[in-house]
Design a binder for these strands. Sequence first.
DNA 1: TGTTAGCACTCTCCTCTCTTGAGTGCTAAC
DNA 2: GTTAGCACTCAAGAGAGGAGAGTGCTAACA
Lengths: 347, 347
Amino acid sequence: MKLNPRQQQILLAIIKEYIDTAEPVGSRTIARKYKLGVSPATIRNEMADLEEMGFIEQPHTSAGRVPSERGYRYYVDYLMQRYSLSPEEEDLIRQEYTRKVRDIGLLLQRTGQLLSQLTHCASVVQSPKLEVGSYKHIQLVEMSPGRAMLVIVMDSGMIQHQMIDIPTSITGSDLTTISHVLNAKLGGSTVETIKITLLKEIYLELTRHRQILDMVLEALRSSSASVSEDKIYLGGLFNILSHPEFHNVEKVKTLLSLLEQENLLANLLAQINQPGINVRIGGEMSCREIQDCSIVTATYEIGGQPIGYLGVLGPIRMDYAKVISVVDCMTKNLSYALERLFKGGGR
Amino acid sequence: MKLNPRQQQILLAIIKEYIDTAEPVGSRTIARKYKLGVSPATIRNEMADLEEMGFIEQPHTSAGRVPSERGYRYYVDYLMQRYSLSPEEEDLIRQEYTRKVRDIGLLLQRTGQLLSQLTHCASVVQSPKLEVGSYKHIQLVEMSPGRAMLVIVMDSGMIQHQMIDIPTSITGSDLTTISHVLNAKLGGSTVETIKITLLKEIYLELTRHRQILDMVLEALRSSSASVSEDKIYLGGLFNILSHPEFHNVEKVKTLLSLLEQENLLANLLAQINQPGINVRIGGEMSCREIQDCSIVTATYEIGGQPIGYLGVLGPIRMDYAKVISVVDCMTKNLSYALERLFKGGGR
DNA sequence: TGTTAGCACTCTCCTCTCTTGAGTGCTAAC
DNA sequence: GTTAGCACTCAAGAGAGGAGAGTGCTAACA
């Protein structure tokens, strides 16, 4: 379906105007504001064609035109011009990412807040999925009689801990011994490469402590299973309430109840997220609750490895040009910040 | 201001009916549904008195009566009967808390969800503020040349970790040595009781590693400062949208924007939360954004020590009897679950 | 003196009608 | 191919009228 240049101009004008005002756009408005050098009547003719091709729609006969999902898709793919962040916006971002970060959670949360603030939409930020990697250090610490903490450090920088019950006969120095053996034998192995022979060796060396070994190995196994924590930070939900399309409380309710079900949301986003910047418009997503929304996501990475995504969720009538720029920019900034945090170098 | 028994009965009836229907309550309704043995006319007379005393209000002359905040307060303090959880509700709670918990965050989040589900209100759950306590174990793990992870385990079960830059000349065994000395010297000390003499001893023993020691001690110090993480888990926000008082999007927006500002919310809740069960009704809170809501909170504890609070937030017209029972019950269950998790005993 | 029936009065809410205005499609002229 | 003109459509808002719920007041009753 090819559009001639004038049709493209008119479609672009309708979309820009509608994103701005949230009101159906009439032929006169376009003729007045976007000097195309033709009269409203001509524009009307072209609009009739655009409607026939499915790029715009009419809420009712005597209203102006509104972009259809197909129209937005055409806009995003062919018409849209890159938005350049204003100096103030760039400042805001730079300010955030030159801070010293202590807590990753806080960093992700503030990233989400910034995304929302800049786009006036809701934001989603997935916590990084660190590769599990290989065991770097294993430590058993006696907490109280019959109770120990197992601390596991992986070479990816991931750390996990877990309380386990132990026989009360075990002493602190026993735990140190066990820790030493485990480190010596398992250090450098990945979760998958723990061989039976290796386990046999460990059992041989620690025959006295079979019982506690079983517990520790079980804990190691289960901890590697629970790695995919996959937390999603939501931010700026109240922003979407400002958009007139969400003045209907029922809509807000269905949307909110979806967002609060973290696993559903995670599935949806995982489905959407591909390498690069992803734009999903309304019905392009197969999820009923979110048909009135569009989502823009992108993947952030450490050392070239994708480890998570972030994105923006708003009404279909969102400012795609700006949202895409912001998402792109924030992805790069977050990647860089995480890289510094994990791989070191500079402060 | 004393109420005679009949006035109390009528006030109780008005509040029950209004909580149920969200509609102003008329004298005929009360006469019909709550057999007080008097005619609507008599009830009208009493209602006029109750209104004069400020316990109920009239939205407009030809409407029924609505409880005022003062009326709710009287109800909560004197009239309300304890609500007993239904067997299904008790089952639901028991089911949740007999699961094996791995992650505290998950436990708190699910607690919030349960609170919301049972009360049809939004929930807030503060993460436990573990006492810092004394150092149980300190470990430096080499991650890559020039980069190490410092792991700190406190006897309260709190664990913290942090990446630090180290001179590239330092080897893995250097780090082990340093860890040993730190454990030997600092183990059992609290953050406050680290004396200068102790530090001098450490520096003496590790003169070769002054540089890295400075870093580690700095990290120890700053980590104890960042302990008060004070995360608040929100849940079931969409629930409050079901209540007719939140069909106004503006109200929802102000409320949501307050809830998303975690520090503001934390301040507010800290102000509210006293030992025992706290009920704050609308204007009793000095926060403008939340004047249309009531909050019920309570404190959970480990071993008798209060370590956090949880609560329910909903419209002023909430079912206080039920909410209070649920909050009370969940507080006890959460306390018990955390106790098992930290102090051990039974699985 | 407390209680009740009766009644006029008030005020919201719903429905219906009418008007206004924005915008369209079609036709004929340029 | 473009444009002016015109009849037509439809949503939204204003206004009027009626229904209904509930009240306060008065007078009668126990």
